[in-house]
Design a protein around this nucleic acid. Structure first.
Lengths: 313, 313
DNA sequence: GTCCATTTTGCTCATATGAGCAGAGGGTAT
DNA sequence: ATACCCTCTGCTCATATGAGCAAAATGGAC
C-alpha cells in the first residue's frame, strides 16, 4: 500500500523529524518518547526526507555560491573553487568582486612558507587593492605586463609585496617582444633572470585569463604582436591566454610564440602546486573552459552566471 | 580566532556537508576521502548547520501545514493536530476544506473496532460529503440537531453510516428543548434512549465548534433558547459550544441548561479516548481557544491563520 | 625566544545506528 | 476459512558516533 501518507501520518512524521533534525534527539530517545521502535523511527525519518517533508539544502548565507562552488570543484577536479554572485553585468564591478574574492581566498591559503606568483590584469589589480593583510610569503611576478600600461602591473607587485612585508621579484618588461632574439636579451637582464630563477619556488599562483575568441585580452592588444601574428594564432585555434600561455578549446597549449614571451612557461605552471585563475563574464567563458581543459589550474574564482554556463554544457 | 570563515573554508564545509547530508556518506567515509580526522569532519558538519550553510526545514509538500501542526500539538498537548492552508476567507470554502481534512484523518485513524461519534454542523456536512470510504465501525449521533434545519444533521448520519456499512444510532430531536421536563420525555423515547446508551462505547468523536462571542453558532439560533436564556448564558461567560456543552474562556464548562439539552454530557465527552474538533476562521478562534482550555479534546483540525492566532498568544 | 592563555585536536569507551534477513501481519483470491 | 503474495517489523552484530577530557597547537605579550 504505497499510497501517499494521510494527514495524521504526515504530522507524525513531521513531529519525529522535528525532534531529530531540529532538536537533535537520537532515534532511541524519540522511540522512548513515542512508544515506537527505534527501527520504526529510523524508517519514518528516511520517509521524511524521501517525501520532501524534511528538506536539507546547502545555502549561501555569505554571498559565496556554495552549491555552484562545490559542483565546479567536483566537475573539474579543482582543489579550490569559489563562485560568487555578482549582481551587475558591468565588467569593472565583476573584476572588483572577483579580485576581492580571490584576495580573501589567498588570505586563507597562504602561509609564511609559501611563495606567491602573480600575473597581471585588471582583476589582479582589484585583488591587490582589496587585500589588507598577507603572511610574510615570497612574491614573484610571473609575466611581463600584458597591456599597454606598464605601471598597472608594477602597482600590483608593489602593493602585494608591501602587504607581505617582503621585497618583490619583478619583471620590468612587456609580456611580448618583437622577436625571439630580443626576448633572449630581455631574459638575460640580471633582474629579470633572477625573477625567472624564482619560478620553481612558487607554491601558489594567481592569474587572470585573457579571451581571444571572443576578443577580450590585453595581450592581443600588445603592439609587439602584428596583425599577421594574431591571425595566424587564431587560425591555430587559440581561444585563451593564461600569463602568456596560449590555449585552444581542447586545452592544448600552443607554443608558437613561446620564445618571444617574457613569462612563465607551460612547464613552469605545471610545476606549481596551486594555480588559481580568477575570471568571469560571458566573454571569458570559452577561455575559462579551455583553461580548465588544459589541466593547468587547480583553482578557479568566478561568478555564478559563468559557473552555470561552465556546468551547463 | 572565532572570525567568520573565509570563502575557501566555506566551500570546504559545503563540500563536506553535501557529501554527508545530500549523498549520505558517513563521517568516516568523508574523513578517508578528504584526509581529515572523523572528529574534524564532525565539527565541520556541526559548523555547517550552526552557520546556516546547511539548512534543514520541515516543509509541507501536500498542503498540510506540518510545522504549525506540530507546534499546535506540542503547545496544547494534542494527540492529533492537522493544520491546512485555506487560500480563501469564504466560510464555506473553509468548512469544505476542514471537513475533507478531518475526513482524511478519520480514514487513517478508524478501524473496525472503533465506534465513531458525531455532532452536526456544516463542517461535518462537508466531511460526510467528502468521505469515500470508512471501515466497518459503529456510528453514533452525539447531539440533536443544533440548527433549524433538521435534515442536514440526519444526512450526515445517513451518509457516514452508509460508507461504514452499518446501521446508525441517531437522535431525532433538536439539540435544545424548551424545558427540562420535556427533555426528560425526549430522552425516554426508545430510539433516543438506545442511542444515549451507545455513548460510553464511542472511541473516536468528531465535533464542530460553535462560537457565542462573536456569535457564529447554530445552537444560539435554536428557537427553544429565549433571548433571556441567551443573555443569561452570555453573562455567565459562555463563549463556545461543543455539541451542547457550553464553555467559558477559562475552559470551565457551564452546566446551566444541561437538563434541557439532548446531547452527550461533559462526562460523556471526557470518557471518549479521541475527541477531535474541526473548526477555524477568525470568528471561531476564541471559541477554539476556550475548548482547548477545557481539556475536552485530544485533536484539532483547523486552518493556518487560526493556528497562528492560537499560537501567537 | 619564552611564557601563558586560549583554541583546536584526537582519544576512549559507551551508546547509537544500519544492512540484510527472518518472521509477522495484512490484503486479496479462492 | 485458507492459501498466497506482498509489505512491514524487529532482530543481530559490525560499524558509526558523541561527550568529555588531556594533550597539542596557536597567538600574543614580554
Amino acid at each position: 500500500m504505497a499510497q501517499a501518507p494521510g494527514p495524521g501520518r504526515q504530522v507524525q512524521i513531521a513531529h519525529i523529524a522535528t525532534q531529530h533534525y531540529l532538536k537533535n534527539k537520537t532515534r532511541i530517545e524519540i522511540a522512548n518518547e513515542t512508544g515506537l521502535s527505534r527501527f520504526k523511527v529510523a524508517r519514518l525519518l528516511d520517509e521524511a526526507v524521501s517525501t520532501g517533508i524534511v528538506r536539507i539544502d546547502i545555502q549561501s548565507p555569505s554571498g559565496v555560491r556554495l552549491d555552484l562552488s562545490v559542483q565546479l570543484a567536483e566537475r573539474f577536479k579543482l582543489d579550490h573553487s569559489v563562485v560568487v554572485d555578482v549582481p551587475s553585468d558591468d565588467e569593472q564591478v565583476l573584476q572588483a568582486r572577483l579580485g576581492s574574492t580571490v584576495g580573501d581566498l589567498l588570505s586563507e591559503i597562504l602561509t609564511d612558507d609559501d611563495v606567491l606568483g602573480l600575473t597581471s590584469g585588471r582583476t589582479l589589480s582589484a585583488m591587490a587593492r582589496s587585500l589588507t593583510t598577507l603572511p610574510k610569503c615570497g612574491v614573484v611576478q610571473l609575466a611581463g605586463v600584458a597591456g599597454p600600461i606598464q605601471e598597472t602591473g608594477l602597482e600590483i607587485m608593489r602593493r602585494v609585496s608591501s602587504l607581505a612585508g617582503v621585497r618583490p621579484w619583478t619583471i620590468y618588461s612587456p609580456l611580448v617582444i618583437s622577436d625571439a632574439q630580443a626576448a633572449l636579451g630581455v631574459r638575460r637582464q640580471p633582474d629579470t633572470a633572477q625573477t625567472f630563477d624564482q619560478f620553481p619556488r612558487v607554491t601558489v599562483a594567481v592569474g587572470a585569463v585573457g579571451s581571444w575568441q571572443p576578443e577580450n585580452s590585453q595581450m592581443m592588444k600588445n603592439r609587439a604582436l602584428s596583425e599577421e601574428d594574431r591571425t595566424k594564432l587564431l587560425e591555430r585555434g587559440v581561444v585563451a591566454e593564461f600569463g602568456a600561455t596560449l590555449i585552444a578549446d581542447s586545452g592544448e597549449v600552443i607554443h608558437d610564440i613561446d620564445d618571444r614571451c617574457i613569462a612563465i612557461s607551460e612547464e613552469g605552471w605545471r610545476a606549481i602546486p596551486a594555480v588559481i585563475a580568477a575570471a568571469g563574464g560571458p566573454s571569458k567563458t570559452r577561455a575559462i573552459r579551455a583553461l580548465l581543459a588544459s589541466g593547468l589550474i587547480q583553482g578557479l574564482v568566478t561568478d555564478s552566471a559563468t559557473a552555470e554556463r561552465l556546468l551547463g554544457g
